[in-house]
Nucleic acid binder design. Structure first.
Lengths: 212, 212
DNA sequence: ACCTGAACACCGTTCAAGT
DNA sequence: ACCTGAACACCGTTCAAGT
């Protein structure tokens, strides 16, 4: 209803003006409300009031729509991790804050998180745009770990060491997130940040103590 | 062909004598050969040469068949972890061996591993038998970590600390396994054990150093 | 007790049109 | 350029039989 007078009957073209956007949003809603399995192309099309075949004008197939979803998810995840880090001073505090943000995202959007990591979405290198936010996240990890180690007066790590360290922390965060989603661990929401610190603490300590 | 003379025409009852077993095996083969998505009830039935409806005589639904699969997977995983541990002396060496075994299992049976952990298989507590091998694995983790810490003269940890420690190591192993399956990390097969040690090293060190 | 057959309500995807 | 409609080959699951 905004701009009703300035651009009156502009929307009459055919349907949405941005069906692509509408489909991604619908897919997000379905996943959030009904779970990852409930998402189908036909249901997404139904929700935006369009023939299911119209989807193919904007996405090559079902996986392409899922990839678009995942891409936005990774962007959000990185943004939240950055924000969490920015609130902290001190290397280890920043690393733990990143872990809390990662796990909190998974806990708040469990089905969405599963879509992002669940299907073998980009194993074959389709959807290269997915790599952008993931690469950013990885660089963020590397940088923060290196900074935390430098803070402790450690020697500068070589690139391979930096990669391995980033993988170590990513693995710990990711594994913890999944164990929580699988309910292998149950933690009440308000206790979650403290729990993350307890569980990720050893890994962070190990990463920084190897700095001797 | 064993026992051909002692029990000649015994198998003529109707079909398999053990259709359940045959279905689980067929499902395993499908998953291993064609991937987790390729598995369908109808395809499994087809492979054992039976009407797809016959499956329902042995499994309540598709998830029940998947659960049977997963259960055997967890049993194998625990057995391999135990065997790997048994070959090592020294607490940290045993923890790292467990990590290598866990990751090696995932690398050798990627699709199987995804079935075991992928669908929200036992979130709701259906299939309680699944909890048996998983519980064993968790106890193994707890025990080995506690032993490694005791070896270093650490005080005995309280139950909550033991649980948190086990989760920390499980998360690290599981996360690493998944990052490898997603090809977020690429490691050539012969280098995998050494890579596991490098990546899980910080977590193991962190767990044991907190023992002060 | 164990298996079959036809049927139902769903999929993703293709082909050939409609505006 | 963008969307529709009918059709195809698949699902999991239910109902009602067959041996």
């Amino acid at each position: 209803m905004s701009g009703d007078t300035t651009a009156p009957a502009r929307r009459r073209t055919y349907h949405h003006g941005d069906l692509r956007r509408a489909l991604v949003d619908a897919a997000k809603t379905i996943v959030a409300d009904e779970g990852a399995e409930a998402f189908t192309l036909r249901e997404a099309a139904r929700r935006v009031g369009v023939n299911h075949r119209a989807v193919y004008r904007h996405f090559a197939d079902k996986d392409a729509l899922l990839a678009a979803l995942a891409e936005e998810g990774f962007q959000t995840l990185v943004a939240e991790a950055r924000a969490a880090i920015a609130r902290e001073r001190g290397g280890d505090a920043r690393l733990l804050a990143m872990g809390r943000a990662y796990v909190a995202f998974a806990a708040q959007h469990p089905a969405f998180f599963r879509v992002m990591f669940g299907p073998r979405l980009n194993e074959d290198g389709r959807f290269p745009s997915l790599e952008v936010p993931i690469g950013e996240a990885f660089t963020l990890l590397e940088t923060e770990i290196a900074a935390a180690r430098a803070e402790r007066g450690a020697a500068v790590a070589d690139p391979e060491q930096r990669r391995d360290d980033a993988i170590a922390l990513w693995a710990a965060m990711h594994g913890l997130a999944l164990l929580l989603l699988m309910r292998r661990v149950r933690v009440k929401r308000p206790l979650l940040p403290a729990y993350c610190d307890r569980v990720l603490g050893p890994t962070v300590r190990g990463l920084l103590s190897s700095a001797k």
